[in-house]
Simulated scan of single mutants.
Amino acid sequence: MKTVKTMMDEETYAHLVAERKKAGVPSVSALFLLRCGVLTDAKEASEIVRKAIRAAKSKKVGYEFRLRDLFSTAGWNAFSKGARLRAGKMFHEEVAAAIHGLRASRKSSSNHQYYIVAS
C-alpha cells in the first residue's frame, strides 16, 4: 500500500476536518478518497479500524468496550452499514493478532463482541 502525505496550514486542515465530519467519513484521507470517487466499504472500514485501535490503546487497562463504543453515536452512525460490518471483522482479526494489547472478552446476548484493554 502507498502512503500519500499532504502538507497544509492549520486553517485548511480545520476546514477539511469540518468537511470530513459533514461527509461522515473517519478521516481527512477518507474524505479525499470519497471526493475522488474511490472510497469503498473496505477502505472506509480500514480507516475505522485504524482509528479504533488508536482510541482503544488510549484507554486504561481493564477497560471493556465494543467497537462502536470507541466512537460517538453520531460518528458511528455516519459510517455506512457495510463499512461498520467489515470493520468489525477486521478489528476482530487485528485483536486476534495479539500485537495491540487488546483481547476479545465476551459476546453480548445480541452477539456483539466485547474487547478488553489487556496491557
Rank of each mutant, 00 (worst) to 15 (best):
residue 59 K to Q: 10
residue 61 V to A: 05
residue 20 R to I: 04
residue 10 E to P: 13
residue 105 S to Q: 04
residue 90 M to E: 06
residue 14 A to H: 14
residue 83 A to W: 10
residue 19 E to P: 02
residue 111 N to I: 06
residue 86 R to Y: 07
residue 116 I to E: 12
residue 34 L to P: 14
residue 83 A to I: 07
residue 85 L to H: 13
residue 112 H to W: 03
residue 83 A to T: 05
residue 54 R to V: 12
residue 6 T to G: 09
residue 48 I to P: 06
residue 89 K to A: 11
residue 3 T to K: 15
residue 85 L to Q: 14
residue 102 L to H: 06
residue 37 G to S: 13
residue 57 K to C: 05
residue 22 K to H: 14
residue 89 K to M: 14
residue 53 I to V: 15
residue 35 R to W: 12
residue 17 V to N: 08
residue 42 A to M: 06
residue 56 A to L: 09
residue 42 A to P: 00
residue 50 R to C: 12
residue 5 K to C: 07
residue 55 A to L: 09
residue 60 K to E: 07
residue 65 F to Q: 13
residue 97 A to C: 03
residue 62 G to N: 11
residue 78 A to H: 07
residue 83 A to Q: 03
residue 20 R to D: 03
residue 8 M to V: 08
residue 24 G to K: 08
residue 113 Q to Y: 09
residue 65 F to K: 11
residue 33 L to G: 09
residue 29 S to Y: 04
residue 102 L to K: 07
residue 17 V to R: 13
residue 7 M to H: 09
residue 55 A to V: 08
residue 99 I to Y: 03
residue 31 L to E: 04
residue 46 S to W: 08
residue 2 K to E: 15
residue 21 K to I: 01
residue 24 G to C: 03
residue 82 G to H: 10
residue 49 V to P: 03
residue 17 V to M: 12
residue 103 R to V: 04
residue 7 M to I: 14
residue 6 T to I: 15
residue 59 K to A: 02
residue 71 F to A: 01
residue 25 V to Y: 15
residue 84 R to W: 14
residue 98 A to R: 12
residue 47 E to W: 07
residue 54 R to W: 15
residue 57 K to A: 04
residue 64 E to L: 03
residue 60 K to W: 00
residue 52 A to C: 04
residue 32 F to K: 05
residue 103 R to S: 14
residue 11 E to C: 06
residue 53 I to S: 02
residue 100 H to V: 01
residue 91 F to V: 00
residue 4 V to F: 15
residue 7 M to G: 10
residue 8 M to D: 10
residue 44 E to P: 04
residue 99 I to C: 02
residue 77 N to D: 13
residue 79 F to T: 10
residue 114 Y to R: 11
residue 69 D to L: 01
residue 77 N to G: 07
residue 100 H to T: 01
residue 43 K to L: 15
residue 46 S to F: 14
residue 18 A to N: 08
residue 16 L to E: 06
residue 99 I to K: 15
residue 116 I to T: 06
residue 20 R to W: 08
residue 88 G to K: 01
residue 49 V to H: 04
residue 45 A to W: 11
residue 86 R to F: 07
residue 64 E to S: 01
residue 107 K to S: 09
residue 6 T to W: 14
residue 28 V to P: 10
residue 102 L to V: 04
residue 72 S to N: 05
residue 78 A to V: 00
residue 109 S to T: 06
residue 37 G to F: 07
residue 110 S to F: 04
residue 100 H to Q: 03
residue 47 E to D: 15
residue 14 A to C: 02
residue 65 F to G: 02
residue 19 E to W: 08
residue 87 A to K: 06
residue 71 F to T: 00
